[in-house]
Amino acid sequence: MPSSRSSRKGLYLLSRYRLPYLLLLPAVVVLVVFLAWPLGSIFYFSLRETPLGGASIFVGLDNFALLLSENRFLNNLAASLRYLVGVLALSVPLAYLAAILVSSRLRGAGIFRTVFMLPWIIAPVVSSILFRTMVDPYSGPITAALEWLTGEKFLFLVKPDLAVLSIVVHSAWRSFPFEMLLIAAGLTAISPELYDSAKVDGAGAWSQFRYVTLPLTRNQLFVAVLLITIWTLQDAEGVYSLTQGGPGYVTEVAGVRLFKEAFIYFNIGIGSAIGVVLILLSILFMILYLRVIGAGESQ
């Protein structure tokens, strides 16, 4: 296509749709300059080695090869998946239950909707430290209660399984309010007649949930799961201030590894390569979820 024609077409579009383009311009400029461009740079940096106080050199895929050859990095990815599955498995059912309860016609249930949002309002670094002090072997109330119940001392940040449980419970606690809010938003949009007609058809509580509630909140559930997935995958500060990735590398999720490489060791190349892997993983999950919801819609 000759360029003059395309530019003329561009000008035509610009004059015809000037207002919406102008309205979108600030957001687009900010996002292109400060988000899209750095996203490109991360790919660039991942192919280079940038020593402190020196010029960077092109190293091809060396950073990726190094990472994939490491037991540690494979463990980082496994830890991230374990963390993600744990958080979703714990927070989504809890959020669903909470959403149904706060949207019910009970008097006063609405107050709980506000109360339940508290974990979302607290800074992750603060809740991490609170959780850490709660499971302290000598002064934590949770360890004290468990010791009283079982006669055993639970070393939450020492035993690998308990350390994973600690970061999962902490993150699920932080994540469930936002999920609840989204799901509750979907629930309020369902008209009560649908339940009434389901009841007329003889549907029990489970059938009502299965055939009315769940399908009609599917979009909200999708947004909730997607958001929490991405937030959990990239979480660094929550896990780092709780366990620093320990014991060993058991809770060193990819976000924590990235934080350590980029901000503690200044290994920009490796840090960027991990960033690229995280971005690709996020895109993979988005596609996966879109497929699932797409399949659900065509049913």
């Binding site: 035993k159 690998p160 990735g245 320990g246 014991p247 060993g248 590398y249 058991v250 350590k260 060791y265």
Partner: peptide, 16 residues
């Protein structure tokens, strides 16, 4: 990196 690597190594030996 050296110190953190060796510390993580010792922890894995101990707890796992």
């Amino acid at each position: 990196e050296l110190a953190d690597t060796a510390a993580a190594c010792l922890q894995e030996i101990l707890v796992m």
